[in-house]
């Protein structure tokens, strides 16, 4: 972008290149580290500690996890299900209200804009939210507790509204109206198809926040069968025998498991299960993510 007018010298360029190579390695090191530990044999970890490159290569941690599919597969399904369902729901809620408040002549526009805006500056705080969700709305130990509270964020609504307002030509909407289309039809058949980039960005924000969420589980989920991968990792980080203990409730002999289990590797293998989809997906979706961030930064 700086083209030929503003070039730094070859030496500086090389120095910067080296600097960013190191910084990038620091940013990527955790991935390598997690992968390497999950692929090390339990013996080598016990004897030599964690290392950046597996000393004795082994897939025993993954074999173990696949044997524990009652727990792991379930957690994976919870994470995936919550992510897919939540993203879908969130994208629909966000774009529908975003479209409504982007229409200039709409009577409730001012009111709804305030409804969206106020939570950006004030919130009920954790305690009251916790009691409302778990007690009044009955979300305790329900999958809905993982989905609903994260579905809408005012930031996303503003991003959607800004996009609708700035990119959908008013004339297009007017002509659709002349052809007899109602606002719902215009939203579904014109606004949404024309807004794929912003829908992609919002869906990405949502799916990352669902996939990466552990806090909702920590607050509302006690039932071991409803733990997501992140929540499972939290439990295992706190107590390495968690898998062995809970296996008993799922019909597996726990003492036998506790003996044979590659404890250290299993932890990191779960972390790897969480990270692999992200690491594979985000380089491709990065561009939508960035476009969403920059739309959000400019208010319309």
């Amino acid at each position: 972008m700086q083209s030929k007018f503003n070039r730094i010298s070859k030496v500086t360029n090389a120095a910067f290149f080296l600097f960013f190579t190191i910084t990038s390695l620091i940013c990527l090191a955790p991935l390598v580290f997690v992968a390497s530990i999950s692929l090390s044999s339990e013996r080598s970890i016990q004897d030599l500690g964690y290392s950046m490159i597996p000393r004795v290569f082994s897939v025993e941690a993954y074999v173990f996890l696949s044997q524990q599919s009652a727990i792991i597969l379930r957690a994976l399904m919870v994470s995936a299900g919550v992510t897919v369902f939540g993203t879908l729901l969130g994208a629909i809620l966000t774009t529908s209200i975003g479209y409504a408040i982007s229409r200039p002549g709409y009577k409730l526009r001012g009111f709804l804009t305030w409804v969206v805006f106020i939570p950006m500056v004030f919130n009920g705080g954790l305690v009251s939210t916790y009691y409302i969700n778990s007690n009044l709305l009955g979300l305790r130990d329900s999958f809905l507790a993982l989905v609903l509270p994260l579905a809408v964020s005012s930031f996303n609504v503003v991003v959607a509204k800004t996009f609708f307002k700035s990119t959908i030509p008013e004339s297009l909407i007017e002509s659709a109206k002349l052809d007899g289309a109602g606002q719902i039809a215009i939203y579904a058949r014109i606004a949404l198809p024309l807004s794929l980039p912003v829908i992609a960005a919002i869906s990405l924000f949502l799916s990352f926040s669902y996939w990466n969420d552990w806090f909702q589980s920590m607050l509302y989920i006690d039932d071991a069968k409803k733990l997501s991968l992140q929540a499972l990792l939290t439990q295992i980080m706190a107590n390495v025998d968690y898998l062995a203990k809970n296996a008993a409730t799922m019909g597996i002999s726990s003492s036998q498991l506790a003996r044979s289990m590659p404890k250290e590797g299993a932890r990191m293998a779960i972390a790897a299960l969480i990270v692999i989809p992200i690491a594979c997906a985000y380089p491709f979706f990065q561009k939508y993510f960035i476009s969403g961030l920059t739309v959000g930064a400019v208010k319309g």
């Binding site: 809620l93 229409r103 919130n123 009251s128 939210t129 109206k177 719902i184």
Partner: peptide, 30 residues
Amino acid sequence: ADDAELSLLALPAFLWYVLFAYLPMFGIVI
């Protein structure tokens, strides 16, 4: 008709805001 349809569109998210953003604000009375 336009406004009615727009309100219908906004309604689900509005309900979400009432339940998950505004109820807790009144809950701070505790």
